[in-house]
Amino acid sequence: MRLPARRIATTALCAGLLIGLSGPAVMAADGESARERTHAVSQAPLPDLAELQSQVGGLVDLGGVLTPVTDLLNAVLKADNGQLAAADADQFAAAVKDALAKAEAADADADDTDADDTVNLPGTTTPAQPPAVTAPQAGNPVTLPAPVVAEDQTATASDLTATAYADLQKRIDALVKATTAGNAEQVSPAIDGVMTGISNVVAATLVANGMPAADLAGLPALPAAPEAA
């Protein structure tokens, strides 16, 4: 049976209208779903977020310590014969002491947080430190090795940082004494001592915060961690 031409045209027109109306709605729905999926992915936290935040926080604390120390060093280097007025030297020394105290307090808070997040099963002990790491291979980042200690010792990476802070404070005190004693010959050795103390703080901070080892071509191999006694 043949359908009238008018009925065929009417049916085709209705189908076209339905497709025209539903097409944008379907496309809009698909677009909205894609945006929702993209938004959900963009809000997902990085798998190693806590470790990265710890590393960045360690660098922030390190910058807070080094700034007042370099302020003191610059003032001494610009002064005649490396001599400062007692009031000025005391002001610089107080700024360094305050910065070291804040950094040490921040490290203590971080240690408390890590301790709260760690659960040891009965009968288990703290795992041994990883072996020493040699020069990194290209494309395979490694982490600076933490110092290895004997089981009966309580030293940790954070203890090493605290020791470096205390050592730097002693060196700062020696520099302040030399720069106000009127003897220029004592200033240069005291500055060298402070520079060594800075190197100790930087190295201890990098190790304590698990910073990745440097992989720049030409750098010497990483020193081996000290063996347990």
Rank of each mutant, 00 (worst) to 15 (best):
T161W: 01
T156L: 10
G197M: 02
N74S: 06
A105Q: 11
A95D: 12
S22M: 14
T180D: 11
A34L: 10
T134H: 02
K177P: 04
Q153C: 08
E227P: 02
G31Y: 07
D80K: 06
V60R: 08
A174G: 06
D109S: 09
D192W: 00
A190D: 10
G31T: 03
A217V: 15
C14P: 01
R171V: 15
N120F: 00
G210P: 02
N120A: 00
Q83Y: 13
D98Y: 03
N120D: 00
R37E: 10
D71N: 10
V176Q: 09
L73W: 04
L160N: 06
D173Y: 01
D114C: 00
G210L: 03
S158D: 04
Q55P: 07
A86R: 13
D48C: 10
L216W: 09
F92A: 08
D111S: 07
R171G: 07
T163H: 04
L219I: 15
L100R: 02
G193M: 02
T163W: 01
K78G: 09
V76S: 01
I172G: 01
A101C: 06
G123S: 00
A217N: 08
A50I: 07
P122R: 00
D111E: 14
A44K: 13
D109K: 12
Q137D: 05
A115L: 08
G20P: 05
L46A: 08
Q153R: 14
L66Q: 13
P127K: 03
G210Q: 03
V26T: 14
V119I: 06
K170A: 11
L144K: 10
P220T: 10
G218D: 14
D71H: 11
A138I: 13
L62H: 08
Q137F: 00
E185V: 09
L17S: 05
G182F: 05
G20C: 05
C14L: 14
F92T: 03
R171N: 12
A157T: 13
K97P: 03
A44C: 03
T205L: 00
A208R: 08
V60T: 07
L144I: 15
A29L: 05
A75F: 02
S33R: 15
